[in-house]
Design a binder for these strands. Sequence first.
DNA 1: CGGCTGACTGATT
DNA 2: CAATCAGCCAGCC
Length: 108
Amino acid sequence: MDEELHEMIREVVRSIPRGRVATYGDVADLSRAPSPRLVGHVLNQDGHDLPWHRVLRANGTCAPHIADTQHQLLREEGVAVADGKIDLRTYRWEDAVTEKAEEPPGLW
DNA sequence: CGGCTGACTGATT
DNA sequence: CAATCAGCCAGCC
């Protein structure tokens, strides 16, 4: 059953560090999901106890129906939200790609 | 079995 | 920066 994938996606989302964000594509890749759409679907169904607000679209924005809450929660964690968009180049969860994790500005 | 939808992405114009 | 197109996959009718 693909239930394992389902759990995997939730695990990845839960692994996102505080003050950082990830894109659907990243989560999909880390959870070996076949496509980012599955991530969205899973979060919609079982993302109630997950930090789904740390998952955004590739351009730094998020879905309209959750955007309001999303921005609010992110700000609580110290993530700067500018005009409904997050600066991915600064806050993107880079530990996943092991490129370079530079410290975000005024955080904590 | 076929078609539409969606918390998506990337490239192109 | 906005609009379009084409892949992508699961779920519902």
